[in-house]
Each structure stands twice: as structure tokens, then as C-alpha cells.
Design a protein around this nucleic acid. Structure first.
Lengths: 189, 189
DNA sequence: GTCTATACACTGATAGAC
DNA sequence: GTCTATCAGTGTATAGAC
């Protein structure tokens, strides 16, 4: 059955998002997922690192699909990016400022100590950035410009989530949404 | 003597910056600082939370002075912000992509579980943002605009550091520096 | 003030019965 | 495949000698 395995991964995703790597223990994962510890090491013989790698890959893929779906809804790239970020702001607020930036904490905690997790986070970030790049390129931006703008968009969303969680307010991401919308609408492309 | 106490705080600052809160143990702190555990609880009866609060307050203050000193060097706000971010990029690279964003990891790990640490991080972020705000206001930006631009600058630096550490490259912050310079130079103000 | 020894909970991980 | 019991190590925190 993939159900038990999937349940462990799903629970791991949620706990990682608002607690980070070190604060999330395997005992908590098996407790909240309702799975026995024996199963955990049966499905993930590589232990915690392997489990977390699979978890962030899953959440990264889910997020990528949401980003692409959101951006595809609006033709104008400035408006599309602005509305996407406003959606993120609402999501962070609705979670009680506990979640958002599903791999950010893991990236910061583990980039220096686990190259496997660092590479996994890099791959996910690259995918997200490519989604913004494609939207900008389709909007007429030159290659270099689309690339650096996509970097700014991704970075400011990640940083904006941190500010929202710290200030317990969705205002930082709202400000960022409007400033980036202004920048993208600005010539030259 | 404040020396022993200061040494503990100093070591805590460094370890927090590249390991985060949960990965940094009190045993490691006393070991690397050369201080005995008895002294740690003598100076910080509130335990780890109190020690970390003092540590991030110190590093926040040091960073604030560096930000203000950097921004004061160049009169044009667009160039001042751009050069500051390029300095951050160089610093992150020179550390081997292990440090940068001295309170970011703590903010993400602890905002949901410790209101004391969350409030401390918020206060520091507010101070840094105010430094950018003052530069923009002096450059002729209207109050609201200066405020939202300062939020974007702070968020994109924090997020840019995460991308640089994950990709082991200073390119993300360099892209961000130039895009923000372009945005700030753009009318209307 | 400084230091050692230690308490107690919890971590990731493993062995072996079923 | 599943589950329990348990390992060695580490976490924070405390007690008490000096």
C-alpha cells in the first residue's frame, strides 16, 4: 500500500512548513500520521534525511502547479504576479501566520549541513522561478531581464512570508505585490 | 566582568546565524565560547530563550548600524540601495554561503512558538526597514511609497540571502540589487 | 562567580518478535 | 509488513561543592 507511506509524507510536509527540520521529530511524525515507527524505517531506510527529501519534493511539486495555475489565469504579467502574491498573503493570514514558505525553513537550516537537502531545495526554487520567468518572457521581457525579475519575485515572496509571519500581518506581502506589479508594468522590457 | 557574558552572546550570535535555533545547543555554545555551563545559567537565568533574545538583539543592532553607515555613503537612494545589496552578496559569498540573514532562521523557527522571540525579531526588522525608509524619504519619495518600497527591499534581501545560500551563488542578490536600483530610479515618486 | 556532576526528557535509529 | 522495546546520544536545566 502506498497509503501509509503517503500519509507519513503528507504529515511531514505540514510539520516541516511551520516547525522546520530540527523541531520536527520522527516521533511526532509517526504519532500525528498514525503510522508505526517500524513502517517509517521500512519505507524510508535512509531515515529522516530521506523522508524530508521526499516531503519537500512533494510540496515543491504541488506548489509549482499552484503557481502555474494562478499565473495562467491572468494574461497581463504585472497583474498576474500581483494577484498571485495577494493570494499568498491571504493564505498566510488564514493559517494564523503559522505556515507559508513550505521549504524555506528547511533550506535555511540544512543548506550548510546536508548537500542532499540543499540540492533538493535548489531544484524546487529553480522550478518556481522558471514559472515566473515563463510568464515574463511571454509578456515580452528580454531573456536576461525576465530572469533577474523572476529572481526578485521569488526572493521577495520568500522574504515577504518571513515578514508576515514575524509581524503577524499580511501587509508586507500586500506592499510587495503592488510594488512588483508597478515594476513589471514599467518600461523598458 | 562582562567579558564572559559578552563572549557567550558573541558565540551564540555566530552559531545562530548559520545553524538556527534548534540546531544550536547550549553545550555547543559553552564549548565554543570557552565558558562553563554554570556561568551560562548565572548570566541568563531565563535559559536558552533569554540568551537567544539577547543575542539577536545584539546582532540586530550591529546590523542596523552597518545598514545606516552603508546607505549614508551614497546620496542617490537607488545607487545606495544597489551598492548595499551588492555588499551583502559579497559577504554571503565570502562566508562560503554559510551565513547571512542573522535572524532569519530564528524568526522562521520560533515565530509560532515563542512570542518573545517573535517580538524581538519584529523589532529588529522594523529598525532595518526604517533605515531604508529614511533613505527613500530623503530621496523624495512620498510616505506611503517609501514605506512599501522599504518593505520590498528588506524582504527581497532576506529572500535573496536564502536563494544565495541554497544555490551557493551570489547571483540572486546581484540580480535583486540591479532590479531594485532600477525600480527606485523609476518615476513617479 | 565558577565548575562538575547529574537529572530527565527526547532525539534518531535499530533489533527482533510476530 | 507491522509493531514494540530499547539503544546510545544529546537536549535543556538544576544541584551543590568550591
Amino acid at each position: 500500500m502506498t497509503t501509509a507511506r503517503d500519509q507519513i509524507i503528507e504529515t511531514t510536509c505540514e510539520l516541516l512548513e511551520f516547525q522546520g527540520y530540527h523541531a520536527t521529530g520522527l516521533n511526532q511524525i509517526i504519532k500525528e500520521s498514525g503510522s508505526p515507527k517500524g513502517s517509517l524505517y521500512y519505507y524510508f531506510p535512509g531515515g529522516k534525511e530521506e523522508l524530508v527529501t521526499e516531503a519537500i519534493n512533494r510540496v515543491g511539486q504541488v506548489m509549482l502547479e499552484r503557481i502555474r495555475a494562478n499565473l495562467a489565469e491572468i494574461a497581463d504579467p504585472a497583474a498576474a504576479v500581483r494577484e498571485f502574491i495577494l493570494n499568498v498573503a491571504r493564505y498566510v493570514e488564514e493559517s494564523g501566520y503559522r505556515t507559508g514558505g513550505p521549504i524555506t525553513t528547511v533550506a535555511l537550516e540544512m543548506a550548510a549541513s546536508s548537500d542532499r537537502l540543499r540540492a533538493a531545495c535548489q531544484y524546487i526554487y529553480d522550478g518556481w522561478q522558471a514559472a515566473f520567468y515563463d510568464t515574463l518572457a511571454a509578456g515580452g521581457f528580454a531573456d536576461d531581464r525576465a530572469r533577474s525579475l523572476a529572481t526578485l519575485i521569488l526572493a521577495s515572496i520568500e522574504g515577504g512570508i518571513i515578514l508576515c509571519r514575524t509581524r503577524r500581518s499580511r501587509e508586507p506581502l500586500e506592499n510587495i505585490a503592488h510594488e512588483l506589479g508597478r515594476l513589471i508594468a514599467c518600461e523598458p522590457r
